[in-house]
């Protein structure tokens, strides 16, 4: 395992930012960390990066306890925060060499690494430009290159694509794909869920400091399909169809507008089959029967909705 988090808790005065969070990331995984603003993503990532002391809990990176061997662990992680602190009076190459020095890499080796990383993030042509002349997207890519200067095995990327225009986002995504092929383990947080679904091998959904779901994208959507949405269009007998559906125990919420009935069902594909079969057996003229494909966005909305409902009930 590259990352093991055990019962991580962080409390700021009265606010519980992270609440008994447990997670594991195997080596080589691209793990998407999903959550609303204030859900505890950045706090968790800062603790994992060794920048914040937790209230309780343990974090192991590559088998090393980050609180016992902080300097050893820092040699294995690359951290990119959701802001880009840069020194405007430095040139791009000097910026890289400065952080190389902080990681204990000097001279020719540092220059070689700088060249290869600037090539990776497509900034070779800006080598001698001052950092303050770079666009936001370029600064983000430079920050990514900085986090890679010591060739870490594990990358912690907090919202690497935030505030970027669509082109810059695509470029960032391409770079992250290259990192995946390089065998890096990546923990990445983002608000742009479809991008995460495309990029990540597994995801974790955090809500109010708690990890409410974790696993591969397929696993989570499959699990969520257990309570999917079905859109049914009927040619006539709408009222009768509604009555039949309401009598079925698997059917939860139901709404009906102009011949289109939307139902929430619990259970997987078997339930869908049973609903359609019942309607057909009762001679309801079904025009279309469309179980909604469960997107990561839908999963996220559903899980965080449930969690906030639970909180309200408590």
């Amino acid at each position: 395992m590259m990352l093991v988090v055990e019962n991580l808790t962080k409390k700021f005065k009265k606010t519980m930012a992270v609440d008994r969070l447990c997670m594991e990331i195997p080596r080589g995984e691209i793990y998407g960390f999903v959550g609303a603003n204030g859900a505890g993503k950045t706090t968790t990532m800062r603790i994992i990066a060794g920048l914040l002391a937790p209230t309780s809990g343990k974090v192991y990176i590559d088998g090393l306890n980050i609180f016992r061997d902080p300097l050893k662990v820092k040699g294995r992680i690359g951290y990119m925060p959701d802001f880009f602190g840069v020194y405007n009076d430095l040139k791009v190459s000097e910026y890289m060499e400065f952080y190389g020095g902080l990681q204990g890499i000097y001279g020719e080796k540092c220059r070689e690494l700088t060249d290869s990383l600037l090539e990776l993030v497509r900034l070779t042509h800006k080598r001698d430009a001052y950092v303050d002349t770079l666009s936001r997207g370029m600064k983000q890519r430079l920050c990514l290159a900085r986090s890679l200067i010591h060739d870490p095995d594990f990358l912690i990327l907090d919202e690497p694509a935030s505030g970027l225009d669509p082109r810059a986002r695509v470029e960032m995504k391409e770079i992250l794909k290259e990192l995946r092929t390089m065998g890096k383990t990546v923990l990445i947080s983002s608000h742009i869920l479809p991008e995460l679904a495309e990029l990540c091998t597994s995801i974790g959904i955090i809500d109010s400091g708690r990890l409410v779901a974790s696993g591969s994208v397929a696993e989570i959507t499959e699990k969520m399909y257990q309570s999917g949405l079905i859109k049914i269009k009927v040619a006539e007998k709408e009222e009768e169809a509604v009555k039949i559906l309401m009598e079925m125990p698997e059917v939860g919420e139901l709404s009906s507008v102009a011949g289109v009935i939307e139902i929430k069902v619990s259970g997987g594909e078997e339930t869908s089959v049973r609903v359609l079969k019942t309607l057909v057996e009762n001679e309801i003229p079904v025009v279309s029967f469309h179980p909604e494909e469960c997107s990561l966005e839908a999963v996220f909305m559903s899980l965080t909705e449930r969690s906030s409902e639970n909180e309200n009930n408590q």
């Binding site: 920048l51 820092k74 992680i77 951290y79 925060p81 880009f84 602190g85 952080y99 900085r146 010591h150």
Partner: peptide
């Protein structure tokens, strides 16, 4: 204030 402190603290420099 420049938000560069954390980038230093995350390195291997004590």
């Amino acid at each position: 204030e420049r938000q560069t402190l954390e980038l230093m603290l995350v390195t291997q420099t004590p």
